[in-house]
Amino acid sequence: MADFNAKVRVFEDLNIIDVKGYLDAHTAPELENELTNLIKSNKYKVVVNFKELEYISSAGLGVFMAYIESMRENNGDIKLAEMKPGVYSIFDLLGFPLLYDIFPSEEEAINKFKQ
């Protein structure tokens, strides 16, 4: 069975979401819930750490597409970090690296918010 988990931790004025497992049409609502909760709490600066994400389908990509503009409208962003090559290749196939900030490390994603 598909296993997915999204956990939020706070670092200074940022919220970091650690995603783990398989992000597909079945599990995407769990990530949506976390992003909805952050917007409700006026938290618009988000880093998503993909270190433990094994798989993503278009339903997972769609979650970022649906929420990133709301973050940007409020002087925030969703920055993406530490993707495995297989996961990055799916973002790349659809041209996401032109539209999203994607970093090799979480630290670089955090520093980008400070610039």
Binding site: M65, A66, E69, L94, G95, L98
Partner: peptide, 12 residues
Amino acid sequence: NMLSYLKEKKRG
């Protein structure tokens, strides 16, 4: 069109 999908907050 990814850019317009983003602006429209389209997820599918």
